[in-house]
Design a protein around this nucleic acid. Sequence first.
DNA 1: CTAGCTGCAAAAGATTTGCATGTCC
DNA 2: GGACATGCAAATCTTTTGCAGCTAG
Lengths: 146, 146
Amino acid sequence: MKQCSKERLAAFDAACRRRGLRLTPQRLEIFRTLAAATDHPTAEQLHERLQRKMPTLSLDTVYRTLATLTQHELVNKVDTVESQAHFEVQEDSHHHLICHQCREISDFAWPLIDDFQLPEEVKSWGEVNRKSVTVYGICRKCRGKR
Amino acid sequence: MKQCSKERLAAFDAACRRRGLRLTPQRLEIFRTLAAATDHPTAEQLHERLQRKMPTLSLDTVYRTLATLTQHELVNKVDTVESQAHFEVQEDSHHHLICHQCREISDFAWPLIDDFQLPEEVKSWGEVNRKSVTVYGICRKCRGKR
DNA sequence: CTAGCTGCAAAAGATTTGCATGTCC
DNA sequence: GGACATGCAAATCTTTTGCAGCTAG
């Protein structure tokens, strides 16, 4: 398991202060553990991993913290096929349109992408069946309401 | 609400027969309603919509049918940020790697995509915050096991 | 006829919430 | 000190499952 850099922790600290979020030990550990993970753990997995270092940490706090950090865009919820959500620290960059506000899903076509070659890296990962782009934003309807 | 074409229903019928799936009235109605929908309904929404036409249809059957049809690739589960899954009929074509077998999620970079211009269509939809590509397939590890 | 479906009810799993207590700022 | 966080337990919500009866092929 890789370690979470001091820079990243400092950035987290700063981001919390800027937004008026309290920097509790729980939040710090949850973030640190998530940042150190490479496998997109679930809330439950994170809770398990934190047992040793922080035996009193409750699963609800993990859920709540992840929700809060996701809201503040410090953590990103990975979209999965399963109902159980997976989380990851928001990295800078790593065919559905989904509106953050109303949650409505629309389709769009992007033929250029379908023909586009995936990077080499992916070929070594395994056998690809399907690629799908998801675009997030605020739809025109909701945009008008604000 | 648009209607489900006879051609599509015939194709559904054929696909079921080919795969040895029974063509029950419930399955037919669920498929017809899903195909006619443009809003990616949830199992519950579909169930509600079918109440009038088929009052005895149970929610479990909707869940089970959607699961079966998804397995047979006649229906597609849309990945969402929320825990509640949304479904859609599998249309022709429409930065995470997800293995269908072990469900492991890996990351990959695809800088070309980040710079790539989204289609016009999307601009009229609203304000875009983020686009993310999800690639599904079988990873090397699982590939070896079969 | 019979393997595969359906409905019902109950279980399971994930996530959220109310409330009392604790603690960062 | 006071607003915000946490922990606990209980509630809620979604989805799955066991079982008995039904039905498409």
